[in-house]
Amino acid sequence: MPEKTKRYSIWEKLKDNLFILGITVPCFLYLFAFLIIVLFYLLKFSFSEGLPIISILSEAEFRNALLRTFWFMLIGTPLQLAVGIILALLVYESFKGVSLTRSLFLIPIAIPALVTAVIINLLFSYPFGHMNDLLSGKYTFFPKILELPLNFSGTEFFSIGLAMLGKVWRDMPISMLIILAGLQTIEKEGYEAAQIMGANFYQRFKYITLPLLTPAISTVLILRSIENWKEFIFPFVLAPAYPLLGVLIDRLYHVQQNPYMAGACALWLVLFIGATTFLFTFLTKTVRAYLVKV
């Protein structure tokens, strides 16, 4: 008798698990298949004859692209964080029309990245466009700064700067939302308590807001640095003459028809992203520990 009961329950368990397996396995199999494909080809290309993963390191265009991407990431990430914090602080406390303002702040995310790049292209077009007309003093409300129109996409500084501008503009709602969610977990009474104890605005920000916001800040830093490393569309459209790593991968694959080098470059990009993520995680932990100390 007890044996029968036991067998029944095992059968039931199996049936239940079969159901769960049946509805989850296809999904994860699908994702897993892609994972295998991606890893397989990246490793195959990178470690094929001549070891492209090593030999690419001595290529000048790879080194240049790496350096550009590194600066793009290093400047773009804090910039996006700062913009996120400022926007979040602007709409954090409620005022009349706050929800409309918040909705307006979300507009950039509704503009496809490619379209954003197109708009920037239009605004900064050469030789005549709004920005060039503005800088050469054609509008009455702005002083003349330039004698000759500036070809923005012809200089490394401006073309990559415009790519960064596009990236910051389009993605600002994402950073804002994460910081906003972080701010909303902080109790208002905590500020009042600190205020009564004599903490001024700066001290409240330093001792309370900042440490309580570090999880959100660290999330933004990590997500943004990854996004900046892998950015493709903006530099592809706005700075084609000065490739970042993503653009270089496309160039190697489509123009030079060299999937081996492209694969090696792609693998390096993954490794850089991993290293940066690790570094930022470690950094934000250290900073938080410092801020919380008595």
Partner: peptide
């Protein structure tokens, strides 16, 4: 998956 660079993943996927 979300964080993996799509520009890196696209080459293997296209090859396959």
């Amino acid at each position: 998956i979300r964080l993996f660079p799509d520009i890196s993943a696209v080459i293997p996927v296209a090859e396959q």
